[in-house]
Design a protein around this nucleic acid. Sequence first.
DNA 1: CTCATTTTCTGAACCGGATTCAGAATCATT
DNA 2: AATGATTCTGAATCCGGTTCAGAAAATGAG
Lengths: 248, 248
Amino acid sequence: MAIQDRKERQLAEREQLFLSAAREQICQDGLLSLQMAKVARACDYATGTLYQHFASKEDLLVAICSELVDKRVEIFNRLVTWDAPTRERIFGIAVGDIIFAHHYPEHFRLAQFVFTEVVWQAASAKRRQQLLETSKPMGDAVQRIIEDAVAAGDLDPHGRPLLEMTLGQWTMTLGMHNLVHAEGVLELYNLRDPYRMLLRQLNALLNGLGWQPQQDPFDEQALEALVQRIQRNVFADLCQDQNGCKNL
Amino acid sequence: MAIQDRKERQLAEREQLFLSAAREQICQDGLLSLQMAKVARACDYATGTLYQHFASKEDLLVAICSELVDKRVEIFNRLVTWDAPTRERIFGIAVGDIIFAHHYPEHFRLAQFVFTEVVWQAASAKRRQQLLETSKPMGDAVQRIIEDAVAAGDLDPHGRPLLEMTLGQWTMTLGMHNLVHAEGVLELYNLRDPYRMLLRQLNALLNGLGWQPQQDPFDEQALEALVQRIQRNVFADLCQDQNGCKNL
DNA sequence: CTCATTTTCTGAACCGGATTCAGAATCATT
DNA sequence: AATGATTCTGAATCCGGTTCAGAAAATGAG
């Protein structure tokens, strides 16, 4: 029945409306001042209507996070299909995450929050399972890169799994993003170029993976060139506007 | 006047009482279910009394965090005065953090939370400054190790600053700790020995610092031996009890 | 020891924000 | 147009942090 379709469409639209209003509020005033009533009001609906879409505030946050994971998966997949030497593709994952962090700052901050015990604990077992499931595609993407590399013969199949690199990279990116957004920290540590520093560290991580034959880490110049190349070839659409990847 | 002294002592004692009750509640039921009234009740005081010590819940959390930073500084300092080759001492910082995470899990989780935007944003500018100041001694400790290393001629004075390693190590440890405490994550990624993995990654980081002459990373065996040695020589007092460093 | 004064403690009251739900409004169908 | 089903509404409820007027305890002078 067509009517049913329309209703579903409207429902989905409104859900998006709520989600983006919530995101906007988070960007604007921070996670702390996100209020259900405000979100509803911003969309010209009553509080109760919002609660028909999301059973709780936590639920809303988790929904935003799911979007986040989807976007991140999309970014991962670009690297998987990118035609380049394996090491560069792997490094690209890290660069992708940084670009992602630039483009969806509220998402990244939220991920930090949601995967932190605070929300994690609040979430029901079922919800947790859901969140974990969502990240499966990301693992698959990484798996595919591993297989390619082993097939190409330039990664030791018995070496330390690439997964370690990925997790390490992820935690470091989250952590760095955290530092960048904590007012005063960069100054205290006199960190002028946090993302560059992150890249250098990732370079060290990458190099420990067990390449065959063993390879030197990228030097500063190679690193710079690589980042440029990745931005141009893989994330061209994201990196054109002025608030894009400038500080990268 | 002696009476004044006694009063101050009692005040300090009660403050400790409140702090440890709060810590216990956090350990028990998580950060989310920490309630001011419960903390007060657990100590047989009324809510208002608790508020004479801490102006707000946030204030209480920050106080717990300050303790945390002190403890961490203490751990750092052990490494600074430990007599061992520079590389081992630096690696020791990482091991120290992991041991610290084992021994004060609630502290570490809290640090994650406090330095996260959520609390950070809520804290007043003055409070933020305070928190940052507290971490100064830690930076000093690291600085001293750098100087020792450069003086001993085994670290390139123009190389990448050790600080980078420290920050990277910190963010990774926080992140890993996070993963370890997020139910289901370890299983999903089939991570059997997360802290070992962390150490391997830190090893890679450490190796990128610019040693003179260039050195190979520790291999698995050397790593294991090193961890044992650090536990025995530097953290003997922390590592004896049964719930100590077992899973390290 | 008693009383006045100061200090400390108490918990009921207040307040903001998440959540609920009884009724109002809208929609679909006959 | 009437009726029943669905959706929307926002006032009411609940919960937990915070406050503050008064109760209780401590102090010190007489």
